[in-house]
């Protein structure tokens, strides 16, 4: 069995680190006090927990040369999926948080600094 050792180790490391990020984000969803901080933890799960393992899968499939030329399809699919999640997950979290802020649907209890204080829409519900 022909295996390139360097991409294989890098890919396995990426997948393992991604699993660690997933655990962190799950703990964050359970423990964090606030809607906005929980959205932040979900985004950690999306970026660290899916983009990194997808890149890791691409590296692993580069390493396993026995799979033949079909493995490059796997590489391309994984990398395109990673790029899409990298673009779309933060945007979804951003629009969720912004909607919750402007419609006053979420409590902002542990508040230290509010950069959107002077915005017109969300100012009414303080």
């Amino acid at each position: 069995m022909v295996v390139n050792l360097l991409p294989l180790v890098l890919g396995l490391t990426a997948v393992t680190v991604g699993a660690f990020f997933d655990v962190v984000s799950a703990i964050g969803i359970l423990k964090l006090p606030n809607f906005f901080t929980r959205v932040h933890s979900v985004t950690i799960g999306a970026i660290g927990g899916s983009v990194l393992p997808l890149i890791g899968v691409a590296l692993i499939s580069i390493a396993l040369e026995d799979l033949g030329p079909q493995r490059f399809y796997l590489v391309g699919t994984s990398i395109v999926g990673a790029i899409f999640i990298l673009i779309l997950a933060p945007t979804g979290a951003h629009s969720l948080a912004r909607a919750a802020y402007t419609m006053c649907q979420a409590p902002r209890k542990p508040l230290i600094y509010d950069a959107l204080e002077n915005m017109k829409e969300g100012a009414s519900c303080r």
Binding site: I87, T91, S95, R98
Partner: peptide, 13 residues
């Protein structure tokens, strides 16, 4: 519309 972030990502997607 929504915020600038959503708009520019929609222009790409």
């Amino acid at each position: 519309g929504l915020s600038d972030v959503s708009k520019s990502v929609t222009v790409v997607i």
